[in-house]
């Protein structure tokens, strides 16, 4: 009996000591975050008073923007539709590249480890280069317009979707895959029946997330001359036509909000 008492006392003591150690660790982490934040602010010359001092200038700019120029709304219809079309093509076409590439690179479907690694490097490169940079390179290669914009989105999205896809494929329960293999189904049938149905919701929701993202990306592509409403915005700013610029911004915000809702509803339905 006294034996158990001693053991219990020891356990309580050690448990309290462990708690104190956890507390200390938490404090250390907090302190290092504060120091790191301060250091970053110093290096990047983040200066709050300077921002406050700029308020009058910002106020003046806003004044010049208002009221928005409603006249130009009519001319924004075509570029807006262009932007949406770029985003749609830039999301749907990559599906056909990303899925095969993902199947060749997911460890549970790849024909070999070498293929898997090689394709991951390619996907990584496609994804790491931002679509804006792709667009910049492509505009100088194939000229201005929505075409280089669409290609830029396709390249970046293939890289991004490919990664999402292979991660979804790798997360499929190997037990149901084994059951399909056990029926004497070949490699492609195993993928088509044992793997795709199980990860379909994740494939669809990550595609929708990319569609959502690409609508934003497509607006910004105009900055480098790749067409759409971004181009209209760039023109307005370059011409110091601020009322027109604010109209473009309002249109962009409204459209993106609507798309955000549509995408959220669709994603809720596929999961």
């Amino acid at each position: 009996m006294p034996d158990i008492g001693v053991t219990t006392a020891g356990r309580i003591r050690r448990s309290l000591a462990r708690r104190q150690k956890t507390r200390l660790n938490q404090l250390l982490i907090l302190a290092s975050l504060v120091v790191a934040g301060g250091l970053c602010a110093w290096v990047t010359e983040f200066n709050f008073p300077k921002l406050v001092a700029g308020f009058p200038a910002i106020y003046k700019l806003l004044n010049r923007m208002l009221p928005p120029d409603a006249e130009i709304l009519y001319s924004l219809g075509k570029p807006t539709i262009e932007t949406l079309q770029m985003a749609l093509l830039g999301t749907t076409i990559p599906i056909f590249f990303a899925l095969p590439l993902a199947l060749l690179s997911a460890v549970n479907t790849a024909p070999s480890r070498a293929t898997s690694v090689a394709i991951r490097v390619v996907l990584n490169a496609l994804r790491t280069i931002p679509e804006l940079l792709w667009a910049l390179l492509l505009v100088s290669a194939v000229g201005l317009g929505t075409f280089p914009g669409v290609i830029a989105l396709i390249l970046h999205t293939t890289g991004g979707l490919g990664k999402f896809y292979y991660e979804a494929i790798e997360a499929v329960d190997p037990r149901s895959v084994e059951a399909i293999r056990a029926t004497g189904a070949g490699r492609l049938k195993v993928i088509w029946f044992g793997i795709i149905p199980s990860c379909l919701p994740i494939l669809m929701s990550s595609t929708l997330a990319y569609w959502d993202y690409n609508n934003r990306a497509a607006t910004i592509l105009g900055l480098v001359g790749a067409g759409g409403i971004g181009l209209a915005l760039t023109h307005a700013i370059q011409a110091f036509n601020y009322p027109a610029a604010i109209t473009c911004l309002i249109v962009i915000i409204v459209i993106l909000t609507v798309i955000d809702r549509i995408s959220a509803v669709l994603r809720a339905r596929v999961i």
Binding site: S176, E178, A179, G194, P197, S198, L200
Partner: peptide, 8 residues
């Protein structure tokens, strides 16, 4: 664990 394809 039966190993069926749950979503089908």
């Amino acid at each position: 664990e039966f190993n069926l394809i749950n979503r089908m």
